[in-house]
Design a protein around this nucleic acid. Structure first.
Lengths: 201, 201, 201, 201
DNA sequence: GATGAATGAGCATTCATTCAT
DNA sequence: AATGAATGAATGCTCATTCAT
């Protein structure tokens, strides 16, 4: 086997494991077992475990970067803004669709907490989704939300949007002067057109 | 010190550490040092490290649950759908605003990868944000996007929404029949009203 | 409760635990739980765990000593040697019969190895017993051993005798000049009258 | 060094330590110091401390089993019952003679109680031996016991026999209907021919 | 005397990394 | 380049003992 092939193969096996078990719960022993190589061999290709994981991230990061910027090939003058937006979304989905493992790793879902912890934290995320789904179904029944809405999808869009925003605002320290009402109002104003029928006040 | 106080104090110190260093990189030694207690004391209040972390998650989860459901006290007949939506958002932000550490832990930002890994993966998230910010600024200049838009906020809303959706679709296996175009179109249609001026095609 | 009573009660509970779980596997926590006392109380009556165990041993040792020497009250001139021997045996059995826990502790059966170890070592002792039982049954069938012999009892007598002798000879170092044949012959000569019918060569 | 040799070497060193200090008081640190290996090396050959001890027991158990059953090679028709008995005894002594450590471990003398406990419990065994020795010497002086008797040996035979029998009867619970007199009589009848001169009543 | 929260020395075990072959 | 036995720093956890109340 070519050295390049072998390095690639190790990365492949490591990726699967990291995606499922996360960084800490994936042992070098797991990787060499799956890759069918000797313990020392891994250190011929990677400085250490961290370097192996970074290589993985870098590899897919550069793939994604190429992919993401390709969107700029689009002739802005020729496509409508919505079309341009559509392509951005499509390219992003495309990137993650090619590899569920990369998806899990980049979306921090497989950082590897012991089983119980993982499920406790997932329960929180599931609950948020459920609450939004309930609210949306209520909105549909009351005629405030389009009947044909994919509520599961919208619940994820809204949940993802809100949680990320919370992190933006508070993740690196909470500003004591932060105006909660104003922020909530802004987010509400931005997202409302996406879910409510135009007639809704 | 009361036993309850002491347990609470340990949770406080552990929370700070877990938020900054994550689960694996936070050692029991760190916690006892910060809490100023003896090694064995932690095991008087918690079965083990995992139990301590779960207690933390459960504690804030139940706080959040109370908080989240309180929104249902709102008289649906009395408030407009948008007002209801606003309150949901406000309550969520409120929960995370009270504690940056809880915010980091629940949003899986502090699950603890070694420094280099953490920054590599953050770079990816920052990049996504930047690309969206650029696109939005372009939209502003071209008159497709409201001039007074808080682009940083919207970039986070969009980024969070899209990434979470990607995980929804691909996180637990990629369906070979998945229709990329259709999914992207749906997402685009839902989110477009939130960013484009009504006049944009 | 009187202090003396309380000390006695702790000894009672500790004895039961030590007999079943052994010294190391019996925790102070076990003892205070069974005795229904506080952790610190035990140290009011005993210097430490070791002292508690020693107190236990000493207590029964002195009881046994009294019991054993009482045999000397027997009027040697009045009883036959066999009667005297009988009384010694009876007194010893009597001592152990009064308390199975003391029996287990003194006979080193409950020194507390983790389950697997305990059973591995017991298997060895059971095996020895079985071999002797087999041999004796063979002897009965061949008419060398009395038909009414309690083979299980004799197997234990012989096994206990032999193993203890092995320890006498080799437990504190093996003499290179030790004459195996001579020793085995001596033991055989001593024990043979106890098992074989007088007619056996 | 060959892997097999190394495993063997670790077992050797561990055996010595377990024999002297017992299971609990023998630390992994002791073993690696004596074996001159690194801490982790032990876990390359044994799952854990318990597995190491079990391996030790199993190893010698199987050696003994082979040794014990070899006795059955003896042509029963060709040897007298006493000769057969002699060989059994010889084989058993032979097994323990080869290794004082194995002797101590199997005969539960090295199960490792802290120094003081060990000596307290030994004192009891020594005392029993002394009492029997005294009695036997008395018997010699009175002409009831053969003059050339090895009293120390017989004391150990009798002590071992009696103690083991006590455990047989009471170790796993004391039968309330147990007939002490009858049992003592039986034991007395069995052992008397082994010690008394034929003329003794 | 009694209590039980607090203590911390001590221990088994893990696992990324090395290096002689 | 490949191997895998050996390494040992690092870590979570235990449990007898203490001492302020």
């Amino acid at each position: 086997m070519e050295p390049t092939e072998r390095k690639e193969m190790i990365l492949q096996e490591a990726k699967k494991l990291f995606a499922v078990k996360g960084y800490y719960q994936t042992q070098i022993s797991d990787i060499i077992r799956e890759a069918g190589i000797a313990r020392g061999t891994i250190y011929q290709y990677f400085k250490n475990k961290e370097d192996l994981f970074v290589s993985l991230l870098e590899k897919y990061y550069s793939q994604w970067e190429k992919n993401a910027y390709l969107a700029e090939d689009l002739d802005l003058a020729a496509v409508s803004p919505r079309e341009y937006f559509f392509h951005r979304i499509r390219r992003t989905l495309e990137f993650f669709a090619q590899d569920q493992d990369v998806c899990r790793i980049y979306l921090r879902m497989g950082l590897g907490l012991p089983g119980e912890l993982e499920s406790t934290i997932s329960r929180f995320e599931k609950k948020i989704e459920d609450i939004i789904v309930n609210d949306l179904n209520l909105g549909v029944r009351n005629g405030h939300v389009p009947e044909d809405m994919d509520v599961r999808l919208v619940a994820n869009l809204l949940g993802g949007a809100l949680l990320r925003t919370a992190y933006l605002y508070f993740g690196s320290g909470v500003d004591p002067d932060f105006d909660l009402d104003r922020a909530a109002r802004k987010i509400c104003d931005i997202l409302s057109p996406a879910i409510f029928l135009p007639s809704v006040p």
